[in-house]
């Protein structure tokens, strides 16, 4: 029993340097996740700030556009979005699937991040904005230097959640012909006629990734929270 288990994991990893397939897949997963998180944060901050700012001004149509984006992204399945965007762009021959994947996951994540950041901004006392403005800082300076740093500290756990979900969701990237970690595991399985060990190996990789990210977020939380409690 133990022997056969060991053999099947050995087969899933060693012959034909199969471990390289996982490593390549892991690299793709990391790349997509990384750029998607960056893009998601950028979109998220932009949409959240626009929503908070335009809410009290004459440019209510900007809020409407942001809400439309958020509703569409949150209201449709990620895999369908991925397929639609891929097929929209795939009309040209040499598409970079990796780029399409990162952009698609980033656009998707941005909608969720935007709502998280908006909640963070709205949790900050109005007096903070007034104090910043009364010192002569303009709206965007106050937002950047005073409101957002405090907002991010408050929402870090929720943001961490979103990034964890994002890393795991990249496992559907296989549908647009990207060989990410999950897809790599499936390829190995189709070679060895034994799908379970590669999947378990892939699962272990995701687990380690997410645990690493959790650790990183913990460190960040402590550093941002230095004005908090003493």
């Amino acid at each position: 029993m133990f022997e056969s288990l060991r053999d099947s994991f050995y087969n899933a990893l060693i012959p034909d340097q199969r471990y390289l397939a996982y490593l390549d897949g892991l690299k793709i997963t990391l790349l997509i996740s990384f750029f998607a998180i960056i893009l998601g944060i950028a979109i998220g901050i932009l949409v959240a700030v626009v929503k908070v700012t335009a809410m009290n001004s004459k440019m209510k149509w900007l809020v409407a556009i942001c809400n439309l984006y958020i509703n569409i992204i949150r209201g449709t399945p990620l895999m369908v979005q991925l397929l639609i965007i891929y097929n929209l762009i795939f009309t040209s021959r040499n598409t970079n699937e990796l780029l399409v994947g990162a952009v698609c996951f980033g656009i998707n994540s941005g909608a969720y991040v935007a709502e998280i950041i908006r909640a963070g901004i709205e949790s900050i006392d109005r007096g903070q904005m007034e104090a910043g403005r009364s010192l002569g800082l303009n709206y965007l300076q106050t937002m950047k230097l005073i409101i957002l740093p405090q907002a991010v500290r408050n929402i870090l756990p929720a943001l961490g959640n979103e990034f964890i979900v994002l890393i795991k969701e990249t496992s559907v990237a296989g549908v647009i012909a990207v060989t990410d970690l999950t897809k790599a595991a499936q390829y190995v399985g189709s070679r060895t006629w034994d799908i379970l060990p590669p999947l378990v190996i892939a699962a272990a990789c995701y687990l380690v990734l997410v645990m690493g990210l959790t650790k990183l977020l913990g460190v960040l939380e402590r550093r941002l929270g230095k004005g908090d409690r003493h």
């Binding site: 007034e130 009364s134 800082l137 740093p149 405090q150 004005g227």
Partner: peptide, 22 residues
């Protein structure tokens, strides 16, 4: 208004110090 506010200091009831800064 930002230029003008530089010349008008304001002190609030709730202090409104920035808690994330020293």
């Amino acid at each position: 208004i930002n230029k003008i506010r530089c010349k008008m200091g304001m002190v609030f009831q709730q202090f409104n110090l920035f808690p994330h800064l020293s």
